[in-house]
């Protein structure tokens, strides 16, 4: 996951922001507890969203307390604590991080490869615990990662097919939030469309660097796009953005449809913010080249 599913903070109420932050921090602590210290680096807004969804779908209230945190040494931070809503997202995060790093090891060059190998060794224990806890999910993700690699190897030009494995992965992840059959169908649809959103946004975000490095990117294979000196013309970029606009809007409409269908009650305002405002904000920042994965707060500037 890549951090594209996040709240638009200026529009969060203070109480919502505090809950969101407490879930974020609590999740970090839970990851340390369940899957090891190293896995905390895999913490992202995406997993936080999964946690909020989990707590909403399963009606889990916030249980929090102020705790110390090495990243914020001065003040104690409000952290969701001793809450069963955090277990699933923590384990899922370890699974996804493991496969992401394995992917980096097979794709990366020299130092990236070494870095990924080191990180993967660090979270290996956590991954094994997660795989033990959710063996079926682990199996599905591993199959879908293979499918993804196949698409990459044959340089799949059709965007819908290229994002299918990621979308299916998100379908499995969100489907796993509940055992209720009816709810599961809706959550799966929601997850699939969200996976599409994430993949397409990521593809657009990485487009220029992928072209430079000659890496696979389905958007670079759009009909008529010419690559010269590891670059594309502004006109070509505009045409690509038209295509992603269409797909993103269609995906957002599907996400909204299934979200309305789910009719969730708890944490509704926060979820509304992420789905109706946050997602589009991130996409627009990416489109304008202003999104920065590593900078957490800068992306929130309007």
């Amino acid at each position: 996951m890549f951090g594209y599913v996040r709240a638009f903070k200026p529009y969060l109420r203070v109480c919502e922001y505090e809950t969101y932050q407490a879930i974020y921090c609590g999740l970090c602590k839970e990851m340390a507890r369940l899957t090891g210290q190293a896995s905390r680096f895999a913490l992202s807004y995406d997993v936080t969203f999964l946690a909020v969804m989990n707590m909403s779908v399963n009606d889990i209230p916030v249980t929090a307390r102020r705790m110390r945190c090495p990243v914020h040494p001065i003040n104690k931070r409000l952290c969701v604590y001793d809450n069963k809503g955090l277990m699933y997202p923590a384990f899922v995060s370890a699974l996804l991080a493991h496969y992401k790093l394995s992917d980096d090891i097979s794709d990366g060059k020299n130092y990236q490869k070494l870095l990924a190998m080191g990180a993967n060794a660090g979270i290996d224990n956590g991954y094994r615990r997660a795989a033990l806890k959710y063996p079926e999910l682990d199996k599905r993700i591993s199959e879908l990662m293979k499918l993804q690699a196949e698409h990459e190897n044959k340089r799949e030009p059709v965007l819908d097919i290229a994002c299918d494995p990621t979308a299916q992965m998100m379908r499995e992840v969100f489907g796993g939030l509940t055992k209720d059959v009816q709810k599961r169908v809706k959550l799966e649809k929601f997850g699939y469309s969200l996976g599409r959103f994430v993949y397409i946004t990521d593809a657009l975000d990485d487009l220029r660097s992928d072209i430079k490095k000659k890496c696979y990117n389905p958007l670079a294979l759009t009909d008529g796009v010419k690559i010269a000196d590891g670059r594309i013309s502004d006109d070509d970029y505009k045409r690509i953005v038209e295509i992603t606009d269409l797909s993103i809007n269609l995906s957002l409409a599907e996400i909204a449809d299934s979200f309305v269908d789910l009719d969730l009650k708890m944490y509704r305002a926060t979820l509304d913010n992420i789905i109706y405002v946050g997602l589009r904000n991130v996409y627009e920042l990416v489109r304008e080249g202003r999104f920065n994965k590593r900078m957490r707060s800068k992306g929130d500037k309007i």
């Binding site: 909204a256 509304d272 913010n273 109706y276």
Partner: peptide, 19 residues
């Protein structure tokens, strides 16, 4: 594809269509 999202009307701070 025009950017409509079902249910966005009731959301605080989310103008219809794009924010």
């Amino acid at each position: 594809s025009s950017g409509y999202m079902n249910g966005s009307r009731n959301v605080y701070g989310a103008p219809r269509g794009t924010y």
